[in-house]
Design a protein around this nucleic acid. Sequence first.
DNA 1: ACCTGAACACCGTTCAAGT
DNA 2: ACCTGAACACCGTTCAAGT
Lengths: 200, 200
Amino acid sequence: MQDAEKRPYHHGDLRRTIIETAMDIMNEEKGWQFTLREVSRRAGVSHAAPYKHFPDKAALLNELALLGFDRLYEALVAAKPRQPNVIRDAFLAIAQAYLDFGKSNPALYRLMFSAEAGKAADVHLNERALAAFGVLIALLERGQSEGKLRNRDVRGQATACWAEMHGVTLLTIDGLLLPEKVGPNALDNALLTLLEGLEK
Amino acid sequence: MQDAEKRPYHHGDLRRTIIETAMDIMNEEKGWQFTLREVSRRAGVSHAAPYKHFPDKAALLNELALLGFDRLYEALVAAKPRQPNVIRDAFLAIAQAYLDFGKSNPALYRLMFSAEAGKAADVHLNERALAAFGVLIALLERGQSEGKLRNRDVRGQATACWAEMHGVTLLTIDGLLLPEKVGPNALDNALLTLLEGLEK
DNA sequence: ACCTGAACACCGTTCAAGT
DNA sequence: ACCTGAACACCGTTCAAGT
């Protein structure tokens, strides 16, 4: 990712390199509290160079969070239930995809929902985050029209699902859902409990 | 809280003052990224003084998080449902108390579940956090024995409730549950959806 | 147009020295 | 036993100067 010796003075694509390097660091450590100077070091540029591509560190974090919502949305729409026409399978596939995304990108997931990223205007409720919410809405509407799910306010149901998945993902990332504390199948059972609240 | 001029050299109760000052700062700003030097300044001591009471900043954060779990537990057991013998009322009262705690102490709540606090050993799954989880378990067991709730794995149900409340609380704190996006009663409806998954 | 080097104000942490 | 002052290594950010 960083072949600093090959570039004489101008990097060429420093902006992309900064983003990729930051993502790399987040994958290695499990937090997003990396240092801009460390990113610069790895990218083989001076610590002032990033400021030609981002106004400040918050802007970089902002960009990373937006990329995260992109990837989360893609992960959700890519979820392939075994029987797509079975609403329960579709729900569980999406829930699993959501959880897997968080487990695969813990630092990025935390950053996406951190207050730090939220400060910068439209990160949280951007169109990509709402698109992910829309995947949920669409599924629930389909389930209701098929007569499988209770006819309640869809946005309330979607909020319940989102909160549950958000909570489960964070608790898992933070290592709080230890089997010896909450039981071996607590996670699966938790999702089923919510599902039963959705189903008729 | 800080009358620096009254104390000549020795503070007397600096440890407590540091904790209280840190809590004050967290209440003012909505984050826990305060500076140890700022705490010292407010407390009217040198920036080296805190190191006589805490090994490092992480230890102070650790202590604050533990205090947070104490308060959360107390808030949950203090929840007074209108009709305590009605399991649904008891559930909603606890959920409301949990959410209210988070809304009243956003910075502290975030700190309690932050990876930063989690690093320090036993913060997350300490006896107080488990005590709060126990409040949930007890309620669900009562509901099952009364025949009001489905006879499923109690720890799975408790995990579902905890994740839902954790998710709802964080999404609320972060300002993501805007009425114009998720609907006016999405929050209440979300809790009812989960409740229907618990009830027979 | 893009990058560097030195500089500034700030942290967390340490430690000899003060009371 | 508790606190201070100076010191160290580190940040984020700025800016004149280099290519």
